[in-house]
């Protein structure tokens, strides 16, 4: 592992950019591999990042994905300029979605994104202001022993 205590970076996302969907999570995956993060955590982080990426592409105008890798954890913070979520417990419910029909026809917007991010991560926090945007904090604990 490169000899620094912490490494961080940013990726930028554009709303509606379906043709590049997956590119940010793919770059994040390469970065995590480069820093020697364990394969199972890389996989979970890539899946969570992909879901967050899709949420911005589907719902927001734009957003950023910030990551920080330390000896203790991988922390992914996703911030968007989007409509915000009025009822977070409802949005966290599997099957609830506000995605438009044409997005659903592509097979997205089934209301499984946020629950999947929560499932993949060790710690998941969500904060949202209607009319401003949503922030996700997705943390992977590097010290936790795998079950």
């Amino acid at each position: 592992m490169p000899g620094t205590d912490s490494h961080e970076g940013n990726f930028y996302l554009m709303g509606g950019d379906f043709s590049n969907a997956g590119s940010v999570s793919s770059e994040l995956k390469s970065t995590l591999i480069k820093f020697g993060i364990e394969q199972s955590i890389v996989r979970r982080a890539a899946i969570a990042a992909f879901e967050a990426e899709m949420n911005i592409i589907i719902h927001a105008v734009a957003g950023t994905l910030h990551y920080q890798i330390t000896d203790e954890s991988v922390m992914i913070t996703v911030t968007d300029m989007g409509p915000g979520i009025a009822n977070i417990p409802l949005a966290m419910q599997a099957g609830y979605s506000t995605a438009p029909d044409w997005v659903r026809e592509m097979g997205w917007g089934a209301g499984m994104g946020l629950p999947n991010i929560s499932k993949q991560s060790d710690i998941f926090n969500i904060d949202s202001v209607v009319g401003e945007g949503t922030t996700l904090e997705i943390i992977f604990d590097l010290k936790k022993k795998e079950m």
Binding site: A21, S23, S25, K29, F50, G107
Partner: peptide, 15 residues
């Protein structure tokens, strides 16, 4: 699947 659009490849890669 019956889906034919490019996002299928992105999903295949990440999974």
């Amino acid at each position: 699947t019956l889906q034919t659009h490019p996002n299928t490849v992105a999903v295949a890669v990440v999974k």
